[in-house]
């Protein structure tokens, strides 16, 4: 097998595995049970999507995809930070209103 055929096969295998990982993280987003679990799964999903775009970059040879992948990683980080702050604020508010309530 020559190198071009090998990289073609490897990227195809990687895309299939990453698709399975995407589906698995979506399952966790759907079943929850809490908001923090969903945010965590969303964070993982952005990383997996970034890997997906990287695999596509290798498969097509278009390195512009790499910029998209890095921008997606940045966006995922900012989204997680914002959602973590949101969880914090919402939780503290609920605690002030009624100490027995578990957010």
């Amino acid at each position: 097998m020559n190198a071009a055929a090998f990289i073609d096969l490897a990227s195809l295998v990687a895309l299939v595995i990453l698709a399975a990982a995407l589906i698995a993280s979506i399952v966790r987003i759907v079943i929850g049970p809490s908001l923090a679990d969903r945010v965590l799964a969303l964070d993982l999903m952005t990383v997996v999507a970034m890997g997906f775009i990287g695999a596509i970059a290798i498969r097509t040879g278009l390195m512009l995809y790499l910029d998209i992948a890095i921008a997606l990683a940045l966006l995922g980080f900012l989204a997680t930070v914002a959602l973590a702050r949101y969880i914090m604020r919402r939780g503290l508010k609920a605690e002030n209103a009624d100490p027995e309530v578990q957010p």
């Binding site: 490897a10 990687a14 990453l18 990982a21 995407l22 698995a24 890997g51 990287g54």
Partner: peptide, 17 residues
């Protein structure tokens, strides 16, 4: 690169599992 790509994808799948 191909080997690294497949291993990276496997670790992503492990994280999801």
């Amino acid at each position: 690169g191909g080997v690294l790509l497949v291993f990276g994808a496997l670790f992503c799948l492990l994280a999801a599992v």
